[in-house]
Simulated assay, not measured.
Amino acid sequence: MTKLKDKRREKTSVASEIDRLEERRARCQDNLGRAEYRSRRETLSDKDRQDLEDEMTIINERVLKLDKELQTLRGENRRNMLLSVALLVISALFYYVFFVNEEDS
């Protein structure tokens, strides 16, 4: 199952993976907000309150994990962008050296 997910992720771009993770993070934040609201507004038994706090802890851990993944993907995206810019500059330099200089000769 995990190999299938890894293969699927290999086929997606870094930007679409970032978007997907940001959406998941937003959903987790919404769920966390609802749980916090529920803990403040409702009178809960001790067991229900403990269950809600456990749920909030799990959601917080998911958010932290997603933040780490997003940070890694953004670094990879930044590196890809720098590589693209470097290739563009090298291509422009070769174009100038081989085509523009030939016309001047």
Rank of each mutant, 00 (worst) to 15 (best):
T12W: 04
S13R: 07
S13P: 08
S13C: 06
V14D: 02
A15S: 13
A15P: 01
S16P: 05
S16I: 08
D19I: 01
D19Q: 14
D19N: 15
D19P: 00
L21Q: 09
E22Y: 06
E22G: 03
E22W: 07
E23N: 10
R24I: 03
R24K: 11
R25M: 12
A26H: 12
R27F: 01
R27P: 00
C28L: 12
Q29R: 14
Q29E: 14
Q29H: 04
Q29I: 06
D30I: 02
L32T: 00
L32I: 05
G33H: 05
G33A: 11
G33D: 08
G33N: 14
R34V: 00
A35F: 02
Y37V: 10
S39M: 15
S39Q: 14
S39T: 11
R40C: 03
R41M: 13
E42S: 12
E42Y: 05
T43C: 04
L44S: 01
S45P: 02
S45H: 03
S45C: 07
D46L: 08
K47W: 09
K47I: 03
D48Y: 03
D48I: 04
D48A: 15
R49N: 05
R49H: 07
R49V: 00
Q50V: 00
Q50L: 05
Q50I: 02
D51L: 15
D51Y: 02
D51N: 15
D51R: 14
D51H: 07
L52K: 13
E53P: 00
E53K: 13
E53V: 01
D54Q: 09
D54R: 15
D54W: 03
D54Y: 07
D54I: 05
E55Y: 11
E55L: 14
M56S: 09
T57R: 09
T57V: 02
I59M: 05
I59D: 07
I59K: 09
E61C: 11
L64I: 05
L64C: 08
K65D: 14
K65E: 08
L66W: 09
L66E: 06
L66P: 06
D67P: 00
D67T: 11
L70Y: 04
Q71M: 09
T72P: 00
T72A: 12
T72D: 11
L73T: 01
R74W: 05
R74Q: 07
G75M: 06
E76S: 02
E76K: 15
E76H: 13
R78D: 13
R78M: 02
R79N: 09
M81K: 12
L82Y: 15
L82G: 09
L82N: 15
L83H: 10
L83K: 15
L83M: 11
L83Y: 10
S84K: 15
V85F: 08
V85A: 06
V85T: 11
A86Q: 10
A86Y: 04
L87Q: 07
L87M: 12
L87Y: 11
L88K: 14
L88Q: 13
V89P: 03
V89N: 03
I90T: 12
S91K: 11
